[in-house]
Every structure is written in C-alpha cells, then in structure tokens.
Design a protein around this nucleic acid. Sequence first.
RNA 1: CGACCGGGGUGAACAAUCGCGCUGGACAGAAAUGUCGGUGAGGAAAGUCCGGGCUUCACAGAGCAGGAUAACGGAUAACGUCCGCCGGAGGCGACUCCCGGGAUAGUGCAACAGAGAUAUACCGCCGUGAAUUUCACGGUAAGGGUGGAAAGGCGAGGUAAGAGCUCACCGGCGUGGUGGUGACAUCACGGCCCUGUAAACCCUAUCCGAAGCAACACCGAAUGCAGAGAGCAUAUGCUACGCUUGCUCGGCGGAAUCUGCGAGGUGGCAACAGAGCUUUAUGGCAACAUAAAGCCAAGAUAGAUGAUUGUUCUCGACAGAACCCGGCUUACAGCUCCGGUCGCGCG
RNA 2: GCAGAAGUACUCAAGUGGUGAAGAGGCGCCCCUGCUAAGGGUGUAGGUCGAGCAAUCGGCGCGAGAGUUCAAAUCUCUCCUUCUGCG
Length: 109
Amino acid sequence: MFLKAYRKGTSGVNKYTAVYVLKNYRTNKDGSPMHTKLGIAINAKLGKACKRSRVKRIIREAYRANLDKLRDGYIVIIAARAAIFSKNVKSTDVEKQLSVTMSRLGVLE
RNA sequence: CGACCGGGGUGAACAAUCGCGCUGGACAGAAAUGUCGGUGAGGAAAGUCCGGGCUUCACAGAGCAGGAUAACGGAUAACGUCCGCCGGAGGCGACUCCCGGGAUAGUGCAACAGAGAUAUACCGCCGUGAAUUUCACGGUAAGGGUGGAAAGGCGAGGUAAGAGCUCACCGGCGUGGUGGUGACAUCACGGCCCUGUAAACCCUAUCCGAAGCAACACCGAAUGCAGAGAGCAUAUGCUACGCUUGCUCGGCGGAAUCUGCGAGGUGGCAACAGAGCUUUAUGGCAACAUAAAGCCAAGAUAGAUGAUUGUUCUCGACAGAACCCGGCUUACAGCUCCGGUCGCGCG
RNA sequence: GCAGAAGUACUCAAGUGGUGAAGAGGCGCCCCUGCUAAGGGUGUAGGUCGAGCAAUCGGCGCGAGAGUUCAAAUCUCUCCUUCUGCG
C-alpha cells in the first residue's frame, strides 16, 4: 500500500520533509472513506537509531497538529530530509511547512 | 600551588499545557472502552567478542577428528571475566603493561646477504714445505666482513697461533638443602654450555553435543497444495532408506508414512521474583561469601518518553530496551568525590 | 533481533610468511581508414611524502589501528564498511 503511494502518488517537498499522497479508494463497510493513513520514512543513512527516532517523533507531532483539518480517505507518506536532523529544529517550524505542503496537495481542508 | 597516578559517582533542573505505551489500582459501563491515578530506556540499551539461564532436537553413549584456554593460587552458576601473587618490561615515584606452558619429544621453516645457518676456514693469524713475496698442506673461531641470529658474556692465565683448554665474576642447565599451598626465591655442589620461530604443525594439561526466542509450544483457513516412497518373507523379522555432530562404532525408526510450501493470532514476554537491587553487620589482603532489614522497578509487535512556552545554571557528550542475566570491547561534553605520588614554597 | 561472508589500481581480480604486489579490461600515443568502431603496434600510471637540475633513489602504502615475527596483503586481536541468509 505504501509502495503504491510512493510510485503513483503526487508529491511535494519543503525544507524538512518530502510528502507523498495517494487517494485511498477502499472504504469502510458503511461506504464512508477510511481514515487517512500515515507512513513515516527515514533513511538509515541520515542518522543512527537514536536520531531517527527523534525525527520520527517530531514529524508525528507536526502531523498531529494538522489532524483537525485533515480529510479522510488518503494515504500520506512523510519522508525525512537531511535538514531535519540538525539540532534545534522546532516542531512548530516543521508543522508550518508541512501544513503548506499538505494543503497544496489537497489533503487539508 | 603545580604536574601526575589509581578508583568511584553523576550523565541539566523545575513549572504549565497538549500528546503517546503499559497497567491483575479505583470508578463508570452489558461489552468495546472511557475518566482519574500509577508507571515508562542506558552506562554503555551498541558491537555480538566470550560465559550461563531457557527452549527444541527418536535423552544426549564411546573413539577419532575439530574448537577453546594457557605461569601459580583463589573467586564464581560459568567464563577468554575478576582478585591476589610470581616472573619479565617501563617509570624518580604513586603505578602501569605482558596470547607469560613446552624449542633436551619429534617434524618443518629461516628469503637476500654471507666462506659457513646447526654446521663452516673467505680474508686473517700461526707452523711446515716449495719457492721468493706467491703457492701447497696442516692448525686455529681470538680479529675482519655478512646477517635478525655466527657456537655463552667479560677479564686474566695459557699457547707457535688460538680455543671453557684452565680460573674468577655474571647468565643458562642439572642435582640437593631451606622458605612458600604453589608459581618461585635463595644457598651449596656439579659437569661444561644448548640459534630463532609453537599468533608453523605439534606435545602437555583442562574444558566443550548441536542450534538458537525469526528457538519453541498452542489455536487455526483445513478432510489445503506439491513432491518422494511403498522390497522380500508372513503377523513378526530382514533389508532399502531415514534420523542421531564431520567420520566410525553403537543406538532409534522402519512400510508406518516422510519432506517442502502454506493468512493470521496467542503464549514464550517481564503483575510471581531474579546467580535481583539498596543498606548494615560478620569473615577474608581482595575478588567474594554469609546473615538481617527494606524494595518490586519498561515490556512494544511497524514497535511507546515527544512538542510548545517560561525560569535557572557550569548551556547539556555518546546515544534508544525487543527473551533474560554475568563480563569484555568500542563511543562519550562536562561536573564531582575518595586515596596516593613527585616537585616547589611557607610554618 | 539472530547467523554468516567479503574488503588489493578507475573496474574485474591473482597472490595464503621472503626480492620490485601477477594478469585482464580501461587510459595515452602511433599505424590502419575519407572519418569512426573493430584490429595491430607501443607506452603509461601503480597512491603519497622526502631527496635530486634530471635519470633515479629512499620511507610509508593491500579497509583502519594494535600485536607476533629478523620479515606480514598473508598469522592473532579490536574497530569500520559492504553484502547475504533466517518469519
């Protein structure tokens, strides 16, 4: 499912992350669209386990802040870029950038 | 005060708001679950280099092969770890470092250089003969040169020249005495002296069954799919064959079936509790042991600890549990405690 | 998480204690051709530091660092990197 989103989905980038989005046509039993699924991709070449884990949390926090505006029925993959591994990265910055990129891709209302 | 040596501790703190895992705590609910509370990464969680626990393998047996360790004595569940001690090396010293058994059990290897590498006369030295400044024969390991290594070292005597040939001292070897649990130390005597390499094969002593939680057990779509086998006598044997550690013996199974593939879930797994942690006492030089009192402290399954704001300081290093322990190794900003050494100054 | 394998020029690699670390592709130049490819001939660099006008000579270099040895790409130990297998 996530591989499919990588190959077929539309993408957008900002300073910290790259975002891939694909519309998910599978539905729940009552016909409503499924909740949007999140995948986080962090290349092992960018950092060791401890730093990757921290980046994952920051991305998750930024995603969570945009959750109230999020539309259902998508698959979203957020991949880390090298800039997010530098020290003193604030999740509010990542959140703003992510909000702009995701709304451009039509995932946010 | 300065320069060091050894050992230990700590690994930013606090508040508010939002968010996450677990919960055999409380409440609500038929249940799912929710609310409140509790709790939530490391000294290395890392590398996976050793040692165990645990689990499975037709119960685990013998021999060979293979692997590991290596002074000695102890500690330990065990270890390649730790402590003590011996020997050697380094440092003025506190102290540190050492894959530290055997080279007279045997075999192999030692390129090049060099006359010669476990045995040797190239130059030289000495003697004799020829002959006239060279040659032949013999003696010689003191000197030269080569090499990582050249027949114990050094001095004296001795001699034609020399040589443990003789002697003193030192080193090594053997025998005996004394001290020590022992490695070993030390003393006496003796003969006369042996190249290096076992992180080359090997010998000696001790230890080792194999695999690993992706082990393994259970539920399950499911009476699933694919492949292999089905001999000879007759009610039990033999054999093909298969399993058992690489091989042999031995053992087991033996026509009953066997092998491979096959979605997911539960346990293993941490709320039973362990070679557990903390403190004190006793024994021991110490590692550690024993006893008493107190404590229960992560447990995910795509994988939980973060964000924002504010305050303070020395402005925060290396880094994230995945079955669990004991070590080793490697990475690491600072702060701090204890013991000790050397040098300088003052009393 | 567990188990294993391998690192030698730009690439593929041989070498498994003893001088100067094979060989092939590649690369440069020449011939052939109107031009290119192919083919033939020939040469080169082995990286770096130092000495020298130069020819050349010397040291360190086989992933990195220690050790054993007279001598290490090779033997031992510790790290680093890459790859493979196991549901």
